[in-house]
């Protein structure tokens, strides 16, 4: 279990994370979301021990600043590269020095799935291919805690599917805990159990993705004449977009109750629209900035 208590970090005088508190139970896939510069990568670097923490992050009660704890952790940064290992084969050998139980069959099978030559120079690889190599290493290590920074970035759809399936298998078989940051929220929605939204240095919202999305509902409305914003006063609006006779609104609450209240405005048409995690994220971030 990962416990984070009062985690803060600043770069010189700029505060990036402030008083983050979170518990991640074993066997969880946690998606960390936030806008660019929100501090997601910093969050993972703090969790992995790359940046120093003073007992604000604990893995089963042990700090990641201890090398002994880090043998259960694998951190895959957003732009992975190591100058000391020029080929995938050398990279595997490099990691085998630190993780002696790394599974070469897993590594080889992923490289063959990704169609990557083990003996070619990593320098000649695209960012996506380098990431595939590091993904293969990460999965071969089979760590108890896997920290992945923007790992979907640069992967083709087939690679993403392969990767997601492998992560799910790792969690099911090894009870591993995976924390992944991504801007591709639709990807996270597919396989994350929980999410954390970091915004303005703090955790803005967290919880189960499905629950989070289901607490919101979205309606498209058409009226006979122009409608004003005031007509919606008193309703639990998350966002509202009015264009003449048409309105699109996201509300927080039970969809049936909201529909009943909207019908009192006598719309000509009322349609409930599906809402995904990405829209919920946008509404969360915008509402935090006072924009509705």
């Amino acid at each position: 279990m990962i416990e984070i208590k009062g985690l803060s970090h600043s770069f010189d005088k700029k505060c990036v994370l402030n008083n983050i508190n979170l518990s991640v139970p074993d066997g969880t896939i946690l998606g960390v979301v936030g806008i660019n510069g929100a501090g997601k990568s910093t969050f993972l670097r703090l969790l992995s021990g790359v940046y120093e923490t003073e007992n604000t992050v604990l893995y089963d009660g042990k700090s990641p600043m201890s090398a002994e704890t880090r043998k259960d952790i694998f951190f895959l940064p957003d732009d992975p590269f190591y100058t000391g290992a020029p080929t995938p084969k050398k990279l595997f050998e490099f990691y085998r020095t630190f993780y002696p139980e790394i599974d070469i069959s897993v590594f080889d099978s992923f490289l063959s799935e990704y169609k990557i030559d083990k003996k070619k120079s990593l320098r000649t690889f695209s960012k996506g291919m380098r990431r595939q190599v590091f993904i293969a290493v990460a999965l071969a290590v089979k760590p108890k805690y896997m920290l992945l920074d923007e790992t979907f970035d640069g992967l083709d759809p087939l690679s993403r599917k392969l990767f997601k399936d492998a992560i799910i298998k790792l969690v099911e078989e090894e009870n591993a805990t995976v924390i992944i940051t991504s801007h591709s929220l639709r990807e996270l929605e597919d396989f994350c159990d929980k999410f954390v939204l970091i915004d303005n240095t703090q955790i803005k919202s967290e919880g189960d993705i499905a629950d989070h999305v289901s607490r919101l509902c979205k309606f498209n409305l058409a009226f006979i004449s122009d409608i004003s914003r005031e007509a919606f006063d008193g309703m639990p609006i998350v966002s509202l977009d009015i264009k003449g006779r048409f309105a699109t609104a996201v509300f927080e609450g039970d969809a049936d109750e909201i529909r009943a209240r909207l019908e009192t405005l006598s719309p000509a048409v009322i349609d409930e629209m599906p809402l995904d995690f990405e829209e919920a994220f946008i509404h969360d971030v915008l509402s935090g900035r006072g924009k509705k």
Binding site: V50, A67, Y82, F98
Partner: peptide, 22 residues
């Protein structure tokens, strides 16, 4: 020690299960 002057390498080094001093 040139590898220590590169942020990408530092991400790898400092997350390895070996102390920085070692």
């Amino acid at each position: 020690f040139y590898a220590f002057k590169n942020r990408r390498n530092i991400d790898i080094f400092n997350s390895l299960p070996l102390s920085r001093r070692k």
